[in-house]
Amino acid sequence: MNPVLRTILQRLGLGIATLFVVSIIISLTIEMLPGDFARAVLGQSATPETVAAFQREIGLDRSPVVRYFNWISGVLRGDFGESYASAGSLAGHRRLVAEMIGPRLLNTLFLAGAAALIAVPLSLFLGFMAALYRNSFFDRAVNVVSLTSISSPEFFLAYILIMFLAVKFPIFVSLASITPNMPFLDRLHAIALPTLTLVLVIVAHMMRMTRAAIINLLASPYIEMSRLKGARPMQVILRHALPNAWAPIANVIALNLAYLVVGVVVVEVVFTYPGIGQLMVDAVSKRDLPVVQGCALVFAGTYILLNLLADIVTIVSNPRLLHPR
């Protein structure tokens, strides 16, 4: 078999195995969470009988191992279980975890996608320019600005942006509340500020790695050769350095994209954006364990998938692997 394909399949298998291990860790962690969902819902005055009956209803009376296998076999069929919170309501309307996570995840991906579409090209471009004009005023300025933005807490950046772009100059709105049937442009307008905040947070990382990866290569004999062949400075970077720099750049991009999906809860809270991060925080405070588990699994899957993609880029960008002797 083609060695590249084989390596990719190996990584894929490894990724799935990792996801399994993570699912066990998630269940164990949740098992160790202090507090009891039944008591949290029913209140201090509930009698032991009521609590026991409620636990039976949602399956909490069974052993953790049984519950884990019930859950994981459901997940494999695409069923993430039912939310505990809905089980307690007398109206009897049961909500599936998948139904709760689905729309929230789409919102999160929408915001993450918008931020990524701006941040990735921008940071690559700034990285190239900073490498090209190393130690120039431009390089220093980009470094200072990006370091400042990465060193400030996200909520601080968010409030500064709100102050200037929503309050003093009301170009954008400070509440990023979106609904499913909003027109696309209105949605973009609504998420402008959270997107901008996220871009500011992740650009620095990616841009600095791009710059470092390229500068690292600029000392190579083949870069000197390209200069001695009369290549223009931008050609030296794009044609001769970049193809050999993809591996580290792809890895840092993957990490930052993963952050956009799993780490944005603070930004969601500031802008009251209905994303998956908020859902998980709410679920934790309500002890709604199936939702917590579902969210955790989605996050883990995101990380593993993005790292897998970075691995594939690393493999494909290495001609030694792609074209064996």
Binding site: M225, H240, N244
Partner: peptide, 9 residues
């Protein structure tokens, strides 16, 4: 060193 001076990519 031609080996180092050709771009591997």
């Amino acid at each position: 060193s031609a080996a180092a001076s050709f771009n591997p990519a």
